[in-house]
């Protein structure tokens, strides 16, 4: 009997939750704000779905209803990707050690 590919995805999901659990506990509390902004940025990888949605269907009509939602999602995710990574970078630049 063949295994449903859903089971594989579920395995990835559950293992990732465990990975996330251990990785996040090892994050130093002083970096919790950058942690939030960077998780925000990476969750915008949802743009993958947005691009597929935007480009779905025929080439002669790129602005069907489903495409429009895709384009809107691209804009939102793009704000988040650039905003999220850049603001994280800006914060991390500020963390400095004591000068000897």
């Amino acid at each position: 009997m063949e295994i449903d590919p859903f089971i594989f995805r579920l395995s990835i999901f559950i293992l990732s939750i465990f990975v996330g659990y251990y990785v996040v506990w090892s994050v130093t509390p002083s970096l919790h704000t950058p942690l939030m902004s960077v998780t925000n940025a990476i969750s915008s990888v949802i743009i993958v779905g947005a691009i597929i949605a935007a480009l779905a269907g025929s080439n002669d009509n790129v602005f069907e209803m489903s495409n429009i939602f895709g384009f809107l999602a691209i804009v939102l995710a793009a704000v988040n990707i650039f905003g999220g990574f850049l603001v994280t970078q800006r914060m991390l630049q500020m963390y400095k050690k004591k000068k000897k």
Binding site: P5, F6, R9, I12, F13, I14, S16, I17, V19, G20, Y21, V23, V24, L35, M36, T39, N40, I42, S43, V45, I46, V48, G49, I52
Partner: peptide
């Protein structure tokens, strides 16, 4: 959404962010 799109990058990220929060 990652499950819907069958996309592992999105599934992994979702799980990471979900447990982080």
């Amino acid at each position: 959404i990652g499950f819907t799109l069958e996309n592992s990058a999105l599934i992994i990220t979702g799980a990471l962010v979900g447990s982080s929060g």
